[in-house]
């Protein structure tokens, strides 16, 4: 746990949640779409901050800490993202929710 009034990094905040490892990637940027400007919206909307832009101008996705909310799928559409839920019993397991 962490003091509520102190700014903590997003990774540390996600570290408070329970995640169970999944052997497969449940969200995949469709190959060739990494530089699509529409994909950059994911960087703004993802509550877990999992999307970022690398020095080549490509959008990258780090799935550790995915809250499975689906905001990226709504913002970017299924043309850019191959989006599934994690396998049964994997992914985030909220203790409060």
């Amino acid at each position: 746990m962490s003091e509520a009034t102190q700014v903590m990094g997003l990774k540390a905040k996600l570290g408070l949640d329970v995640f169970k490892h999944d052997s497969e990637f449940h969200i995949r940027i469709i190959p060739g779409c990494e530089k699509d400007p529409r994909l950059k919206k994911a960087i703004l909307v993802c509550p877990a901050g999992l999307y970022s832009e690398n020095s080549q101008g490509e959008v990258e996705l780090d799935q550790d800490g995915c809250l499975e909310c689906g905001t990226c799928r709504i913002a970017c559409g299924s043309d850019l993202l191959d989006w599934h839920y994690p396998s049964g019993g994997a992914g985030v397991q909220f203790r409060f929710g």
Binding site: E3, A4, T5, K13, P47, T71
Partner: peptide
């Protein structure tokens, strides 16, 4: 970015006074 909106909200005086001394236990989104 979305996560920063929540951090800015928490920094407002009318919020920070309410959560002072509290411990974050979970972060979620839907």
């Amino acid at each position: 970015p979305a996560p920063e909106m929540l951090e800015l909200f928490k920094k407002r005086p009318e919020i920070s006074a309410l959560i002072e001394g509290g411990q974050i236990a979970e972060y979620s989104a839907h």
